[in-house]
Design a protein around this nucleic acid. Structure first.
Length: 801
RNA sequence: GCGGGCGUGGCGGAAUGGCAGACGCGCUGGUCUUAGGAGCCAGUACCAUUGGUGUAAGGGUUCAAGUCCCUUCGCCCGCACCA
């Protein structure tokens, strides 16, 4: 037998698959389809991370298995290639981002090919190709036409280093998610997408998809729907002050009000407010705090009472003070609240500090000590017509009262904000809009798409924060498509999330010229059957792409309400020391090195074996040797090959292995699938023989995990054909059971003895046999049997006194 | 603070409420070898003498709990005053 030369073997089969287009998606639409999707990578200059293959190998295994089970499988790959790091790299090194992107893609592609992943490379897409972003722009135009894309002057998150607007989601602890620089607030007119219009559907339709639970929960929390009431309070200044509350039942307990420092009524009341200087000074201090400081400050509440204007509680006409405090946000609800210190912990803290009345209106807590916020127990008190009701009933009754007396109405609010959809950068999709002095914002005619990025040498952001595109006159100056007069092109570009919001649609028909993909292909392939990706994309990419899909559904482009039928998530791979891999920690593992030293099959196997797929796991350079050793042992089975058919005494373990591997792949329990194959070959080695058919089944089961060695062995052993063409083995349900089983005999739940009995024997026989057992006899002596519990093929528990 | 998850040998991790520690790493001993950082074989939770104890700690449900319920502690992730 020749040595297991993984380098030759892997090179040989990778070339074979490439030359023969082995994994090209079939056009045979009569077959059942299976669309497997993994998040396409951002091709950074750093190259592939060992985390990438974890996700890609997992669905590669599923895809390969499904092909062998007769499905028409689409398993594509592409590049999410617009984005800041490439642009910053380009600026620093004076290389055009297009060239940087091209080089990075070719490196990534080679690295992926070295892993033997069965992607259909004929369907490769890149978000930076103009034939691709033509359709990104097209989707934007459809949103613009439906009023979902709009411009708005607003305070935006401004990264001082990137010189760029960030979405709320991209700001982490007041710092830019990418470069960690300070983020400040800046007023700017920005393109926005009205994702809030889809908030309800983005929550409610989660019921129709098979996502792992944490993903559903995170999406729901992010959207943050709450049901409550909008209530009008009169003020002594005459103006009405609107507040939002989720606890209309506690209105009788409202002892003061709070408005946000940015609230416009402050300016209106300038002349009524006796301490206006103090209020404006407070507003000034607050505005100077960065978002980060503001959240750091949340230990101690601050605020100032407005002297000269009071609010009037609509339910009892009592005058109550109004405060200004930064614990109320202008961006949520109405920017004003009624404060019920007895039943809200923030209001409680504030009231204690400013010595404001605390009126208990729900019994059951101890308001001397803390706010009572529990809604499930307690009855209303001190609340006139609500007294004695539960919180739920009181809410309903108060809502009716408010509506009847025209003091308020039911109102649903969301934490979700509209999506800031513009970046003042070069390396992104140009927004296809023209600003005309007469017609305003005008859509670029669809036949002029794509609006290509002009090829320039200077892509540094401008000092005033405008996009570098604004410096290019021939790009900027155009005629208005409507009236023909001189107009200017929009120079902002789209955020990185744009291209990744619909890439799974393009894979269905990547070369389509007259639509983002043809109806026929979309109808056949949608929805994605299984989408795996990281938890870090749950609130950004996943939400955005669901939003775009729903919009495309509404305008008739796609026929499913949801893009992804199933969403799973892989855990992170940590460094050897259990910390996140990073250059600064010096714990980065380069997949190329592992492929070189151990081979692609070994790294694939190891990443699937290292632990629970959904949990993070530290890299171990010694554990990986065990996986390599296993492949060596599989290879060496050739030494003990003897005989043809499956030996009768191996029927059971073979069928058990088939069942285990088959089921475990579907449940993403790749680690135990592999361990069952390890256990099988250990058993085979103990018998010193493997037969041709036993070996063949093992090779087929192993092939999705370690495809190169499997192809090679299949060929070398002369089974005929290729392993990837074989049918996935079925197990025989009758043969996954042993003839005899070992049954545990317990006395009062403690194991006292074990019996080997024929499978499926009945309770009476087991009890009879147990009572003949010497150890059990001794245990039962002078004891009274109270109860006998028999679990078939497992145990007998005798309870005695 | 809120939401989610987790806590099992020296390590990664297995266990439809039914034999805790599968499988792998590491370690120990043996074997083959000029050699072994290769291979193969055996052993490997803890305490002790038959036997007993063990799944973060404590309590509960059950004939039976790593698994279900309650309390506490610790770690990880997400969100940060969302009224």
């Amino acid at each position: 037998m020749r040595k297991y030369d993984f380098k030759d073997i892997e090179k040989k089969w990778q070339k074979f698959w490439d030359d023969n287009n082995t994994f090209a998606t079939s056009k045979d639409y009569s077959k059942p389809k299976f669309y497997a999707l993994v998040e396409f990578p951002y091709p950074s200059a750093k190259g592939l991370h060992v985390g990438h293959p974890r996700s890609y190998t997992a669905l590669d295994i599923v895809a390969r298995k499904r092909r062998m089970q007769g499905y028409n499988v689409l398993y594509p790959m592409g590049w999410d290639a617009f984005g800041l790091p490439t642009e910053n790299f380009a600026i620093k090194n004076h290389i055009h981002p297009e060239i940087v992107t091209r080089d990075n893609i070719s490196r990534f592609k080679q690295q992926l090919k070295n892993l033997g992943l069965s992607f259909d490379w004929n369907r490769e897409v890149s978000t930076t190709d103009s034939s691709y972003y033509k359709w990104t722009q097209w989707i934007f135009l459809q949103m613009f036409k439906k009023g979902l894309a709009y411009k708005k002057e607003m305070a935006v998150n401004w990264c001082t280093s990137c010189k760029c607007v960030l979405a709320n989601e991209e700001v982490v602890n007041g710092k830019c998610e990418r470069c960690k620089s300070d983020v400040i607030r800046k007023n700017k007119s920005q393109w926005m997408l009205k994702i809030t219009e889809y908030a309800d559907r983005l929550i409610d339709d989660l019921d129709s998809v098979n996502y792992i639970n944490p993903v559903k929960i995170q999406q729901k929390n992010w959207i943050g729907r709450s049901y409550g009431a909008q209530v009008e309070f009169n003020t002594t200044a005459g103006d009405k002050l609107e507040i939002y509350t989720t606890r209309p039942d506690t209105l009788f307990g409202a002892t003061y009000m709070v408005i946000s420092p940015e609230h416009p009524l402050i300016d209106k009341w300038k002349d009524n407010i006796e301490n206006i200087d103090e209020i404006l000074a407070y507003r000034e201090t607050v505005s100077k705090k960065s978002e980060f400081e503001r959240s750091e400050m949340n230990k101690e509440k601050t605020g100032v009472r407005i002297v000269g204007v009071n609010g009037i509680n609509p339910v009892n006409d009592k005058e109550i003070p109004i405060y200004v405090s930064d614990y109320v946000l202008m961006s949520y609800g109405t920017g004003a609240i009624m404060a019920v210190p007895a039943h809200d912990s923030r209001d409680y803290e504030f009231a204690k500090k400013f010595d404001i009345d605390i009126v208990e209106v729900v019994s059951g807590g101890n308001i001397e000590k803390e706010a009572f916020t529990d809604c499930s127990s307690g009855k209303l008190i001190n609340s006139e017509f609500l007294n004695g009701l539960t919180v739920e009933d009181a809410k309903m009754k108060m809502l009716k009262w408010l509506e009847k007396n025209k003091k308020g109405k039911a109102q649903t609010n969301y934490k979700l904000r509209d999506w800031v959809f513009a970046r003042q950068r070069y390396w992104g999709e140009p927004i296809p809009i023209i600003h005309c002095p007469k017609c305003g914002e005008v859509a670029v005619p669809e036949n002029e798409l794509p609006i290509k990025l002009p090829n320039v040498s200077d892509f540094e952001p401008t000092e005033n924060g405008e996009s570098p595109l604004s410096k290019i006159d021939e790009f900027v100056n155009v005629k208005c498509p409507k009236c023909g007069c001189d107009a200017k092109r929009e120079t902002d570009t789209m955020p990185q999330w744009a291209g990744s919001s619909w890439y799974y649609l393009r894979y269905c028909d990547p070369n389509c010229n007259d639509a983002l993909a043809s109806q026929k292909e979309l109808n056949y392939w949608l929805p994605v059957d299984w989408y795996n990706g990281g938890m870090e994309h749950t609130t950004l990419h996943l939400l955005y792409s669901r939003f775009w899909h729903k919009f495309l559904y509404d305008i008739g482009v796609v026929s499913t309400k949801e893009p992804y039928a199933k969403r799973t998530s892989h855990g992170m791979i940590l460094g050897q020391n259990g910390e996140k891999m990073s250059k600064s920690r010096g714990n980065v593992v380069n997949p190329d090195d592992i492929v070189n030293e151990y081979g692609a099959d070994t790294i694939r196997l190891y990443e699937m074996f290292m632990g629970d797929f959904e949990k993070s796991a530290p890299w171990s350079s010694s554990s990986i040797k065990g996986c390599r050793r296993f492949l060596d042992r599989v290879w060496s089975l050739q030494d003990i090959l003897q005989g043809d058919s499956i030996r009768p005494e191996f029927e059971v373990s073979l069928n058990k292995m088939i069942k285990k591997v088959t089921d475990d792949i579907e449940n993403m329990k790749f680690n135990t699938a592999i361990s069952s194959m390890m256990a099988f070959i250990n058993e085979v080695y103990d018998s010193k023989v493997v037969t041709k058919e036993e070996f063949r089944i093992l090779i087929i089961l192993l092939s999705p995990f370690a495809p190169h060695i499997a192809e090679e062995l299949y060929e070398v052993l002369g089974y005929g054909g290729y392993v990837h063409e074989q049918d996935w083995p079925n197990y025989d349900a009758d043969k996954v059971k042993d003839d005899a089983v070992e049954i545990v005999i317990q006395i009062c739940g403690k194991i006292k003895s074990k019996l080997t009995v024929p499978v499926d024997i009945n309770q009476d026989e087991v009890i009879k046999l147990a009572k003949e057992d010497e150890k059990i006899k001794a245990e039962l002596k002078e004891k009274k049997i109270i109860k006998e519990i028999y679990v078939k093929n497992r145990l007998l528990n005798i309870v005695v006194k």
